[in-house]
Amino acid sequence: MNIFRIIGDLSHLLAIIILLRKIWKTRSCAGISGKSQILFALVYTTRYLDLVTTYVSLYNTVMKIIFIAVSIATCYLIYMKFKATYDHNHDTFRIEFLLAPAVILALLINHDFTFLEILWTFSIYLESVAILPQLFMVSKTGEAESITSHYLFALGSYRALYILNWIYRYHNEEIYDLIAIVAGIVQTALYCDFFYLYITKVLRGKKLQLPA
């Protein structure tokens, strides 16, 4: 474990807590892409099935359970409890265009052609593009509430910090995982324009307005 991964995991945890709290407190999921949340729930449930087979550490197990529980609870709030506030009209990204390539790529490029390994690989590929429906929705509505942009910043930072973690591990432990690294770079790249807007606007107290 290293500082980059710890801060990355905490940033990830912060992001999903911010989102769940925002929906719960405002009793509304306006501006939130339910499709992205479904993809994230799928990412964690497919990646963390190894909860039942391998024990890495208490930290690892607790965090996996939290990620699965919070992501499913967020989907429940969006699609059940506060369904009336779900913005169907702006959450229109076709997620089948993300799921199909992730499945195909996981079957073609993986470390091991076993059930759990294919699911893990699918989860890694899917996570790299899972935020697209949310970013698409923000671009369609032309703006995002500041709490949503804090969520996106924390979520984007987590994988950016993981890249530093992978550099650290390659340098210090001679460990690397090309699939996770390439997908993580793609995932972080997707946030770049958001990061720019967040730093130049939101941190100056302005609303996150995308050029319509």
């Binding site: 470390h111 591990r169 460990i175 996770a180």
Partner: peptide
Amino acid sequence: IEKSSTHDEL
């Protein structure tokens, strides 16, 4: 693809 670690990351 080769890899040199088990999946010990989140």
